[in-house]
Amino acid sequence: MNATTDTVLIEARSIEKRYPNGVLGLKRASLSVQAGEVVVIVGPSGSGKSTLLRTFNGLESITGGEIVVDGHVLHQRSADLRSLRQRVGMVFQQFNLFPHLTVLENLSLAPVKVLKLSAAAAEERARALLVKVGLSDKCDCYPSQLSGGQQQRVAIARALAMQPAVMLFDEPTSALDPEMVGEVLEVMKQLATEGMTMCVVTHEMGFARAVADRVIFMDAGEILCEDPPSAFFDAPKHERLKTFLRQIL
């Protein structure tokens, strides 16, 4: 779908996020993401990765700079966050599935309520997505009846059900038992192959190397460097990135 590669989907210019308690979560961070790109964000804990990602769908408001996502100017007061969020899917570390709804209902809630799809159309869409993430037999289960890996795959399908232009992943495999990490990464790889625009915060360096078009390193609220994976991992430029890579690899 996103075959046109030079459309900019996310354009963040020198954004700053100061939390109400005074903590500076982001400092002069600039980033631009093209349609169809896969951008992986890495960095130590507390470096502002989640904060950055959450500014892209307005879960976090910025206190400085400019940010435009899919044509929505987010630094303006009048920003229509609801219509933005229909275009930006988000996957959380803790899945955040709706526990009182079945898998099928989790997937069709937003398409029915927000996109005003008919129940039948939403269900059809949901079933197709569940086939895609390999969970077609779990339609009527409640989230609590699924393993962590299965829940995260449902969460990905739930975001995809809105047919977003961009998908944001905030450490999607960090809460999973090791044996379930693979199945979730597999789904994400497939999405990338299909040309989905993705921003992924992760500690899975194998995934970054294999799938990312660009890898971004953050530290203390700043974007310190961004490079294609080969240059990023094999010839790190920044001193702090070298230290970071030594620690995790």
Binding site: M90, L97, A110, A159
Partner: peptide, 27 residues
């Protein structure tokens, strides 16, 4: 009700009222 539920609902484009009605109140 965990904050993540509200964030998930909002990320899907649900309005404040829809979030309350379909996600928070049932739980």
């Amino acid at each position: 009700v965990p904050k993540g539920q509200v964030e998930a609902a909002q990320s899907l484009g649900l309005s404040g009222f829809q979030t309350m009605r379909h996600v928070i109140l049932p739980q």
